[in-house]
Computed example of a mutant assay.
Amino acid sequence: MVGVKSADLAPTVAVKVFSAGAAGCVADLVTFPLDTAKVRLQIQGESKPPSGGQRAKYRGVFGTISTMVKTEGPRSLYSGLVAGLQRQMCFASVRVGLYDTMKQFYTGGSDNAGIGARLLAGSTTGGMAVAFAQPTDVVKVRFQAQIRLPESGSVKRYNSTIDAYKIIARDEGFKGLWKGCLPNITRNAIVNCSELVTYDIIKEQILKSNLMTDNMPCHFMAAFAAGFCTTIVASPVDVVKTRFMNSRPGQYSGALNCAFTMLINEGPTAFYKGFIPSFLRLGSWNIVMFVSFEQIKRAVMRCQQSWDSPL
């Protein structure tokens, strides 16, 4: 990212990758209930009873969280957290940690990257990250969508994260763990371009205009703007990805069929189901992640400088 002081050593690729993965985990720990509420709102309505007229179980992000706590207990808000943390260590470390490297690759090593090079770098690292993290994303979504009703005696779909990997691989084959890979690649190429490029450009302009120094307030403003832009652009693909990854075998023939079924049965507004929790989650996630990323990266560099300096 832009804004490294000349007096500082440039962080290595390894430092960026580690810092991004750690920052992604911190952001998930803080915002996971919002992400779970978003998933519940996105899948709501995909299984309508024949008679119709069923009232929506979840209404709004805080209403969804409240309903889940009352009916399933507070732990339900963090269902799938283990897979979520696994995902961030695989996912954020690649898509965020390698962004600057890919940006330099597309500019031939130049630090003056245009919008085209930034977009290419964002879409490339977003697609690469899916290749590493897709199974963890599938398991995370399945757990978040799984309703926990202890008093009903219903059988849970999965008992643990490892159990979920095993059952999906056994019942749905290797393809099951990579279900929704294409819409997820599409989504994350869009998300990465919106998120990283917006953050990169806004941070750069703030620093060039001398409105703020390269510190936490600047990172906060750039991250908030990145979260808002990303939510608007990525919500439709995100809803389709969530529905398709959570679907039973044979429910949809593919991601496009899932999107078409949603359009026919629920109308175009279905593609923006869970928009408010998506924005609350992406906005807060971006703020926590980018602020943590910048601070962890600097802390690691300070430790490295202290370790390398003579006594």
Rank of each mutant, 00 (worst) to 15 (best):
M1D: 11
V2H: 13
V2C: 10
K5W: 07
K5C: 08
D8F: 09
A14E: 14
V15P: 10
K16D: 15
V17D: 08
A20N: 08
G21N: 07
A22W: 07
V26I: 12
T36V: 13
A37R: 00
V39F: 05
R40K: 13
I43R: 08
E46I: 14
S51R: 13
G53M: 06
G53V: 04
A56D: 14
Y58G: 02
Y58K: 00
R59Q: 13
G60W: 03
F62A: 01
S66F: 05
M68T: 07
T71M: 05
T71G: 11
P74Q: 09
Y78P: 09
V82F: 14
L85Y: 10
V94T: 15
G97N: 06
L98W: 03
T101D: 08
Q104P: 00
Y106S: 01
D111T: 07
A113V: 02
I115S: 11
I115L: 15
A117S: 15
R118C: 14
G122W: 01
S123F: 05
T125K: 02
G126P: 12
M128T: 02
V130P: 10
A131C: 15
Q134C: 10
P135D: 10
T136M: 14
T136P: 06
V138W: 03
V139L: 05
K140R: 14
V141F: 12
V141G: 01
Q144C: 08
S152G: 10
S154L: 09
Y158I: 04
S160F: 07
T161C: 11
I162H: 06
K166A: 13
I167L: 09
D171W: 00
E172H: 07
G173S: 10
G176C: 06
G176K: 05
L177G: 14
L177S: 06
W178D: 05
W178V: 11
W178E: 02
C181D: 00
C181I: 14
L182E: 11
I185D: 03
T186Y: 08
R187Y: 15
N192K: 02
E195F: 14
L196I: 12
V197Y: 00
Y199L: 10
D200Y: 15
I201D: 09
I202L: 14
I202Q: 02
K203C: 09
K203D: 08
K203E: 13
E204K: 12
E204Y: 06
I206W: 05
I206V: 12
I206A: 05
M212I: 02
D214P: 11
D214A: 13
N215Y: 06
F220V: 14
F224A: 14
A226L: 05
F228Q: 00
C229M: 12
T230H: 01
T230R: 01
I232R: 00
V233L: 15
S235F: 00
S235R: 05
D238L: 09
T242D: 11
N246L: 00
S247E: 09
R248N: 13
R248Y: 10
Q251R: 11
S253G: 15
C258G: 10
M262P: 06
G267V: 05
P268T: 04
A270I: 00
F271E: 07
Y272D: 04
Y272R: 00
Y272I: 05
F279Y: 13
L280W: 07
L282P: 00
S284F: 11
W285G: 09
M289K: 08
V291P: 01
E294K: 08
E294P: 01
Q295I: 11
Q295S: 15
I296A: 02
R298Q: 13
C303V: 06
S306Q: 12
W307C: 02
